[in-house]
Design a protein around this nucleic acid. Structure first.
Lengths: 178, 178
DNA sequence: ATCGCCTCTTAACCCAGGTTAATGCCGCCG
DNA sequence: CGGCGGCATTAACCTGGGTTAAGAGGCGAT
């Protein structure tokens, strides 16, 4: 039994329209979601009302609130669809139960967590050690299709800056590059 | 078999003097380390030569380079002892092998990864959404003993700012608080 | 004791990014 | 068709943090 078998047996297929929320910051939805198709963003709302983007999710990714799924605490971020999406809903607790009897699945779970931890670590490095300009260039290198798919506002919110600052950065790069 | 049993059977006890490195950025040491006693810092060296601290490690924590342990790539950070340390060295691959036959241990491994992922996520949130001043206050709240154990330079490097900026922040807080 | 080294603080100046606001553009809706 | 709302860009001004440098303890070594 591998992950796609598990989803076939125990996943609940759910469709979301562009713009609709899967869950919101503060909700206690303990589900995880596998992205079949579509494109989503996970974002924090800061106390001053600003929106900062935690990550973009494309087909093939798994997403959900760790705090809600594993610690029974409210989600620290919101998840919204930027395109029409097809998700497969499942429960982390249930997956772990089943994985306990299926080595292949179990390996996949630790692989998932490992992958998540490494991604977060890379993001930590970028936020801690790189300038906004360097983060922008890395983002373009890693997700070249992103520029077409999302607004400058969202790219800025991912980088942790304002759209105004991003516009300045692009101008700087264009001048230096040309 | 639980984790302390595993360490007893398969861990290699190693002692490090204050100031010595366990591994350095770029090394390919695939080991993980359990901290028996002491205090360490994990830090990145940026291209401009600056030092940014990824995390502080106290007794009871597990640390190692994910990239080196799981992806056979060089470590992205260095690990140095800030006090004399006693570590227990083990291999992630081996632990996973053994865990495959010991449910308790296996649960402990996923718990470890989960804990790591949640910590990284919190740090990501702080770096993305909070000001240096807010990060400083949170750090004090979370690790009140830290101020005594490390220098202002290290606290600043953890926050992602310079010691000069940290000094200014403390002055601001003192003036506002008084 | 004193020298040297290191840490912390403070000040002066600089720069990246935040804020606000104006402009132009595009797409949508009536 | 015209109007309107959202997005991107640009400019002007402000602010937090970086940089450099100076001075003030603290402390171990000679």
């Amino acid at each position: 039994m591998d992950f796609s078998d598990y989803l076939k047996d125990h996943g609940e297929r759910r469709e979301f329209a562009r713009g609709s929320h899967v869950f919101r910051q503060g909700d206690t939805d303990p589900s995880l979601y596998f992205v079949h198709a579509g494109f989503l963003k996970a974002y924090y709302v800061t106390e001053s009302g600003g929106e900062q983007i935690k990550s973009f999710l494309e087909a093939g990714k798994v997403i959900g609130s760790l705090t809600a799924a594993c610690a029974a605490e409210p989600a620290t971020f919101s998840l919204v669809c930027m395109e029409d999406c097809v998700l497969e809903r499942f429960s982390y607790d249930h997956l772990r139960d089943v994985a306990a009897r299926h080595p292949l699945l179990s390996e996949m779970v630790t692989g998932l967590l490992l992958d998540l931890a490494m991604k977060k670590e890379r993001r930590e490095y970028e936020l801690l050690c790189l300038s906004a300009e360097q983060r922008y260039q890395r983002l373009l290198a890693r997700m070249p299709e992103l520029a077409a798919r999302v607004t400058q506002q969202d790219i800025a919110a991912y980088l942790g800056i304002t759209p105004v600052a991003l516009s300045r950065i692009k101008k700087r790069l264009a001048e230096r590059g040309a």
